[in-house]
Design a protein around this nucleic acid. Structure first.
Lengths: 343, 343
DNA sequence: TTGTATGCGTTATCAG
DNA sequence: CTGATAACGCATACAA
């Protein structure tokens, strides 16, 4: 008996409620009740159980608990480029708030191939996640439906696909892009360029199109460059192409801050262009680097904390919806720094 | 009967092996065997099961599987500043490789308070994670021991605490710091400064001390600044303090690239100092921004991919160790760019 | 190869 | 307030 307990405590294996019950001299149920919120258990019993648990190093097995409660408290985050400043920030906010709501984040790295997103969603199902938050990739509608059918909550962030079922949370891309045009137009820019990317999501495409539309309806010349992923190097490459031509643009809208940083660096260091005197640049996202003194980039801030808060709320209250939902929109606010001439 | 199946398939709830078995006209075990590697099942049966599963949208419940196999395939990652370039990169590499090894990463955000790390480790136990990888924070030895006692693998990355039990993976901080000194000394620097941080981990402290020791044994003057967390702003602030004095240093070792970026920006943009002509700067980590053309920072690269590969290997092979293990060391290689004068 | 029976660690239900 | 018992979904030893 005693021997058995000793073995267990050293035995490199998890302690069960049964063992705690034996040590405390109560039933399994008493132990269970001690660890479930709102269960009634006498203070004395509770105390004895708690002590036994402490001594044995007992921890409730959430795998088993999730099995019977049909609620795992796991939320999966499907994300591709966690190492990208924007995604990293979003991931940080989401995991922090999820944790505060007594949930835990399982992160699914869907980098690269198209099959990966599929695998990712599969994992989500394997572990019976209560919800899936998609930050990257374009999951097939059929897979989303599977998640939904299994009672999972599916939340799409900044991928405004016209898929019915999941809840979409997006930022006011079009309005912000129009505002970006206004900024540049008022700064006196008369020849514009927008730097987008080849792997653009719906959000990025929306920014690009809205900007172009605004420029065209104001009869101002615009060109569009897409040459590479949404990364620093692509922005620099775009600058090389766009700025080496005869008539350079005097105003540029980069669909992403990362692109803008690359563009700015190439423009200044390779072409010796003065920002914002000769060229104005507007970015999007307000990543940390946008505020660094080498960039001082005028951009649009995504309200990441608000988005994260809202998403976690959504999951917590779990309003199951059958109908097609309108996406929830958050305002992207302009952040004035020094890459655009004032007024 | 039939009605029941229909209800289940629409009923926003997960499908069980039982339901698949009924539809395929086989036993539960047949279904189970179809989905377990290396189990013997007739091709015909297998096919029928697979089809039924497909139709019903069945997915193996890894929670239940983990319960009986005593192996959840969950690995938890304890990390504080995921939004920091270095940690983000490491997290990306780890999650990607974990996934390739058929495991899934549960991320525990241990930002802020000291109790958080404790809570984090607790979560790790709740979900019966097979292993815990600690990237941030200083978990109490007692908690680590609890994890170990429960048969978990504990891996500490870049926190070379003298705790027996867990496996430590670290980078050759001291050697690299000495090399940093050599770089600066050969570049002709005669008055040095090291920029560290107030919340320094053991790794950061090791870099600082080794650099100072090297300088002192060569009879070269060194000062140490620690004013803030390991962040861009702290580096900039350090520059303001260090460079406003009468006799400025002509060589600086920043314990982290993030600090170095802040230092460089302040030095150039606020003091008009020419890098590397008037001042040489060396960083550590080789984050992406170190390669951006505004910085061109000479630094030391942490072999993140190698580390991640090794860590995942370690978890896969699960060599249980009772003895105190020597930390596994990886070489941090110098990356020459333009913030240090050549020769 | 297949099916039956048992157990994994929990919690919910129902008597007491 | 407490204890016995039946699920939860799955994998396996054993018998067929």
């Amino acid at each position: 008996m005693k021997q058995d307990k000793l073995d267990k405590s050293r035995g490199k294996s998890f302690v069960s409620a049964q063992q705690v019950a034996e040590r405390a001299g109560v039933s399994r149920s008493a132990v269970s009740r001690t660890f479930t919120d709102g269960a009634s258990v006498a203070p004395a019993t509770r105390k004895r159980v708690l002590q036994a648990a402490e001594e044995l190093g007992y921890t409730v097995n959430h795998l088993a608990r999730g099995l019977i409660r049909e609620k795992s408290n796991i939320v999966s985050l499907v994300v591709a480029d966690i190492n990208t400043p924007y995604q990293a920030k979003m991931t940080e906010a989401l995991t922090r708030r999820l944790q505060a709501a007594n949930k835990v984040a399982m992160i699914i790295n869907s980098s690269g191939e198209s099959t990966d997103v599929e695998m990712a969603l599969r994992q989500t199902l394997h572990y019976r996640a209560d919800a899936t938050i998609v930050l990257s990739g374009q999951p097939k509608a059929s897979l989303i439906e599977t998640c939904l059918n299994n009672g999972q909550h599916v939340i799409l962030i900044n991928r405004d696909d016209p898929v019915p079922g999941p809840v979409s949370v997006i930022v006011t891309n079009r309005a912000a892009a129009r505002q970006a045009f206004d900024m540049l137009e008022r700064a006196g820019c008369r020849k514009l360029a927008v730097i987008a990317s080849t792997v653009g999501s719906a959000s990025l495409a929306a920014r690009e199109k809205a900007f172009v539309a605004a420029a065209q309806s104001a009869n101002i010349d615009v060109s569009v460059s897409r040459l590479g992923p949404t990364a620093y190097a692509s922005g620099a490459e775009a600058a090389r192409q766009v700025l080496s031509g005869a008539d350079r643009p005097d105003g540029v809208f980069c669909v992403t801050d990362l692109l803008a940083c690359g563009f700015l660096d190439a423009a200044r260091n390779e072409f010796g262009i003065k920002i914002p005197d000769e060229l104005c640049v507007v970015g999007f996202d307000d990543i940390e680097q946008a505020g660094w003194s080498s960039y001082e980039l005028t951009t649009f801030r995504q309200p990441i904390e608000q988005i994260a808060e809202h998403v976690v709320d959504l999951i917590d209250h779990h309003t199951p919806v059958d109908a097609i939902q309108d996406p929830i929109r958050f305002q992207a606010e302009p952040v004035w720094r020094k890459s655009v001439r004032p007024r």
